[in-house]
């Protein structure tokens, strides 16, 4: 564990908590893509199956359980409890366009052709693009609430911090996982446009709105 990885995990945890609190406190999931949240639930479920087969540390297991539980809690709030506030009309990204190529890639490019390993690889590839329905929704409506942009910033920072972690681990531990690194770079690049808007607008107290 190094400082970048810890900071990344904290940013990730913060993102998940911000989202749950936003929905719970406002009693509304307006502006949040249910499709992205569904993809994240699939990501955590397929990646953390190793909870049952492989013990790393208490920290690792607790975080995995928290991420799985939080993703299902978010889905419950969006699709059941506050269903009436879910903005279907703007959440139209076709997720099969992500799921099909990601499945194919996981079957072709993996560390080992075994069920758990392919599911892990699938989850890494899917995570890298799972935010697209949310970013698509923001671009479609042309704006996002400040709390939603804080959520997106925390979630995007997490993988960017992991990139620093991987650079650190490469130099100091000789650890290198090309699958995670390439997917992590793709994931971080997808947020770049948002990061720019966040820094130039939201941090200066303005609402995140896109030019028409």
């Amino acid at each position: 564990m190094n400082i970048f990885r810890l900071a990344g995990d904290i940013a990730h945890l913060l993102a998940v908590i911000i989202l749950l609190l936003k929905i719970w406190k406002s009693r509304s999931c307006a502006g949040i893509s249910g499709r992205s949240q569904l993809l994240f639930a699939i990501v955590y479920t397929t990646r953390y199956l190793d909870l049952l087969t492989n013990f790393v540390s208490i920290y690792n297991s607790v975080m995995k359980v928290v991420f799985i539980a939080a993703s299902y809690a978010t889905l419950y709030l969006m699709y059941m409890k506050f269903k009436a506030t879910y903005d279907h009309n703007h959440d139209t990204f076709r997720i099969e366009f992500l799921l099909i190529p990601v499945t194919a890639l996981a079957l072709l490019v993996n560390h080992e052709f075994s069920v758990l390993e392919i599911l892990w690889t699938f989850s890494i590839y899917l995570e890298s693009v799972a935010i697209l329905p949310q970013l698509f929704m923001v671009s479609k409506t042309g704006e996002a609430e400040s709390i939603t942009s804080h959520y997106l910033f925390a979630l995007g920072s997490y993988r960017a911090l992991y990139l620093l972690n991987w650079i650190y681990r490469y130099y100091f531990e000789g650890f290198f996982d090309p699958i995670a690194v390439v997917a992590g770079v793709v994931q971080t690049v997808l947020y770049c446009d948002f990061f720019y808007l966040y820094i130039t607008k939201v941090l200066k107290g303005k609402k995140l709105s896109l030019p028409a």
Binding site: N54, E112, F175, F176
Partner: peptide, 10 residues
Amino acid sequence: KEGNNFHDEL
């Protein structure tokens, strides 16, 4: 610990 079947990250 070179990736294979042992993923210690989240």
